[in-house]
Design a protein around this nucleic acid. Structure first.
Length: 280
DNA sequence: CATCTATTTGCTGTTACTTCA
DNA sequence: GCTGAAGTAACAGCAAATAGA
């Protein structure tokens, strides 16, 4: 079984979704998320000849396509070292749809891929003619290899999928499902991290807002006091807000993070006021 | 070249099973 | 042994990309 620690190892904003990229760039320079590991393989590999694929090929020989025995595995014979139980299948729409597919691709193994483990005739025979949904538990070794492979590539091309399935004694469909679920878990974990970060941002902004409102009220009170206002060497109107960046700045230090304030303000609040890192 | 259709692939949400406290 | 929660394998449905007609 895989713990949360395992998941956290693989968190990445670079989660490769080529069609639905996760675009959440909250703060590229200071976000805690930026500390998370960005995998070098986050770009999806499509061609079997690219570099990442070759790295993968170094571990698994994808050129040796599954034998006849492997094809039999594809039809639902599960790993001998896996725990198997069965239950009545919930639905077969996809199986029916995909079971009729095939023939268009030049790689039969790949074409058969999605129709495997979906209540084929072999499977039905194995479970007494009743369509069954097998729920197996992957062994530690299988999970470990899958996890290692996922760390290198979070998607697999058909050849890699088949090779990995062969290596693990699983069906290509099982490998595909595992990777789908693994990507989903990664994304969920990342969403949780992003959510926590946004929460902290909201809390900080809320606090900043409160503090600024307090300070504005104090400034208004000071301005209404004729004695204090008359002693000011610089009128409070020397504070400006930049219309573009909306930062408060003095007359000569536009866009600086630490803003020098008028003496009357320093009296009340100290020497400087950091716009981005106000004192709490 | 534009359009249509079939196929593939990944994502999301759900279901069902396993494990564990 | 029972139970609920958490984890996860397997699935359905959908959308987007792609290839071929």
């Amino acid at each position: 079984m895989m713990g949360k620690e395992d998941l956290s190892l693989s968190l990445s904003l670079g989660f490769a979704q080529t069609r639905h990229p996760l675009k959440l760039d909250l703060n590229p320079t200071s976000s805690p998320i930026s500390n998370l590991q960005i995998f070098p393989w986050s770009q999806t590999f499509v061609s079997s000849s690219d570099h990442q694929n070759q790295q993968f090929l170094g571990k698994i020989d994808v050129n040796s396509l599954p034998s006849t025995v492997d094809l039999e595995e594809e039809t639902g014979v599960s790993s001998p070292n896996s725990t198997i139980s069965s239950t009545v299948i919930s639905g077969k729409k996809r199986s029916e749809r995909e079971g009729t597919s095939g023939g268009a691709g030049d790689d039969l193994d790949i074409t058969l891929d999605r129709s495997s483990s979906r209540g084929t005739s072999d499977e039905e025979e194995e479970y007494g003619g009743e369509a069954c949904r097998k729920k197996l538990r992957l062994s530690k070794d299988q999970s470990s290899v899958l996890e290692d492979t996922f760390k290198e590539h979070n998607t697999l091309n058909p050849k890699q999928k088949l090779a990995l399935a062969k290596k693990l004694g699983l069906t290509a469909r099982q490998v595909e499902v595992w990777f789908q679920n693994r990507r989903a878990r990664t994304k969920l974990k990342q969403t949780e991290v992003d959510c926590e970060y946004l929460k902290r941002c909201v809390e900080k902004l809320t606090e900043d807002n409160r503090r600024l409102e307090r300070e504005a009220a104090e400034l208004r009170a000071l301005k209404l006091s004729p004695r204090l206002y008359g002693q000011m060497s610089t009128p409070p109107t020397t504070l400006h807000m930049c219309p573009s960046c909306e930062r408060v700045a003095g007359p000569s230090n536009h866009n600086q993070r630490s803003v020098s304030l008028s003496p009357w303000f320093q009296m009340a609040h100290g020497s400087t006021f950091d716009v981005m890192h106000p004192r709490s």
